[in-house]
Amino acid sequence: MREAALSTLPRAKNAPMRLPRQAWLLARNDLRQEMREWELVATAGFFTLVVLVMFALAFATLSRDAQVLAVPGMLWLTVAFVGALTLTRIFDRERESDTLRALLAAPVERLAIYLGKALVTLLVLLGCCAILVPGVVLLFPAAAPLAEHPIQTVTLVVLGCLAYTSVGTLFAAGLATSGGKNVLLSVILYPLTTPALIFALVATRALIENHPDFSKYLSQLAALDIVLVGLSGWLFESVLVGTGARRAPTTRRRRG
């Protein structure tokens, strides 16, 4: 009658579909909330626009050669800015009434929480890139190759945003549960996501320059994605709740 009991032993593979299902439910829950207010999309989208305009004002007079060097930087810096904003907001929403703790107490796979949040963050970032990339192409003539190779551009943007999201979600979630200050998120996020952003930067420049190595860089970025997602997934549960006390209590008391 009951689907679970306190005395049940943990079964290794009783619900293989539970993880994707719960991840999707959680992501859908976030999207549902978002559709009530459009708060995340509106703020992140507008922020993207603002940064784009700032970059345009600052760099409009660059020569074409210089643009080739500057455009990838603008693109991925904006992703980093918008990403930090989005991650802060997404987890603030879970902190408002302590729902993240409720999720941790609920029979939910911890990894599903991670995947759900990462998916939503990725979607918001991609939405912003839908403004950002055409905007860059429009404002800077040197970025035209991005529009000429739409499939490559989309793949690159997805892989780059995924790399950023995978690391960012782990640490944003960790800060949200440790009751830490949000200031620390920027302190952590910017240095840690740099390698991912450098890879994306390299690939973007190769795409703009029509460099033959572009596909190689793209596959390296994909490999990096796998490493980052794997590492974050592996660490997520430990960062969020910590593992149980494995030490025997007696050894502790002896020292005290």
């Binding site: 679970a4 049940t8 943990p10 079964r11 539970r18 703790r101 409720a102 029979p107």
Partner: peptide, 16 residues
């Protein structure tokens, strides 16, 4: 475990 958590519930003073 998840099965055990399914058999427990926690209501806190924050609304969650």
């Amino acid at each position: 475990s998840i099965e055990q958590r399914a058999a427990m519930a926690f209501v806190t003073h924050t609304t969650q």
